[in-house]
Simulated assay, not measured.
Amino acid sequence: MHWDPAKYGQFGDHRQRPFFDLTGRIDAAAPREVVDLGCGPGNLTATLAERWPGARVVGVDSSPEMLSKAEAHAEPAADLEFRLGDIAAWSPSPETDVVVSNAALQWVPEHLELLPGWLAALRPGAWFALQVPGNFGSPSHSLLRELAESPAWAARLDGVLRHDDAVAEPARYLDIMLRAGCAADAWETTYLQVLPGDNAVYEWVRGTALRPVLAALSREDAAEFERGYAQRLAEAYPSTEYGTVYPFRRIFAVGRKL
């Protein structure tokens, strides 16, 4: 699946806010190594290097397109680097003191099975902070599934979307962290985002949830699918004189190994 960094960054301020709400709960004074799993274009990873200038900060992502943008952030920072890699194959090093994963683990089907192992491998005092979307039941996603499962598209999009079980509820992440011997906190936030522009929610999902569908279809079929989906979103999220309100639910969990 190919990512478009420009489209992903179109609503940068809205996408970045959960990251800072997440990392604001990490109380690490002087970590040796900080890892950002699913670092994307690297702009937020760079803020981790600014926060902890004595740490080696590593961003990991499976998208060459995203990492090509991220490299620009590594040039002025001596201890910031980016690596191409599958999150599912990653494991912490003995010096990993902080792990951050912001809006990435929903793309890793087995992350609930991987999380206990990651936590077990961390040394006492290390932190693990994750944030995933919790809006798979919202119209933006349910309409996408309904269209993909309709007779016109089911054969071509069978198995492409796995929104029903992509993430767990906050209590599940809290339980995993507590069982792994962490002092942990889990919560959820719904941001009522006011998005500018025409059919703004459609433009939003083109940078994230719609990517697997676009990757699975030919250019002509993708254009046809988008037309139908965009119409449904315009009806579900009507614009107003001040923009389009998009409820944006996110799930957070932060743990410190005891």
Rank of each mutant, 00 (worst) to 15 (best):
L233I: 03
T244V: 11
A180Q: 04
F252E: 03
A30N: 14
H2I: 08
S93M: 06
E50C: 08
N102L: 02
S68G: 14
R15D: 11
P133V: 02
E146R: 15
P247S: 12
V194D: 09
R56C: 07
T47K: 13
P116C: 10
R256V: 07
P18M: 07
D175V: 04
A154T: 13
S218C: 08
S138V: 01
A30H: 14
A46G: 01
S218D: 15
P116S: 12
P196Y: 08
G12V: 05
P212W: 13
E50W: 07
A155Y: 12
E113L: 09
D21F: 04
E235Q: 12
S140E: 11
S93N: 07
S91W: 08
S218K: 11
T240C: 06
L130R: 01
L214Y: 11
T189P: 07
P64M: 10
F136S: 03
W90H: 05
D198Q: 06
P94G: 08
N199E: 07
Y173E: 04
G42Q: 02
E149F: 07
E75L: 13
D36E: 13
R232G: 00
A49I: 01
E169N: 06
V98W: 01
P31G: 09
E235N: 04
A155L: 14
L114G: 09
A29M: 07
L48G: 00
R162P: 01
L147R: 15
G243P: 01
L112P: 00
G24L: 03
A216M: 08
A77Q: 15
A29S: 13
A120K: 14
V57E: 00
S138P: 03
R15A: 10
N102S: 14
A29N: 05
E235G: 12
S93C: 05
R32K: 09
E149Q: 15
N135H: 13
P31W: 06
W204Q: 01
E169G: 11
L119E: 02
H141S: 13
P5V: 03
Y173H: 09
V57M: 03
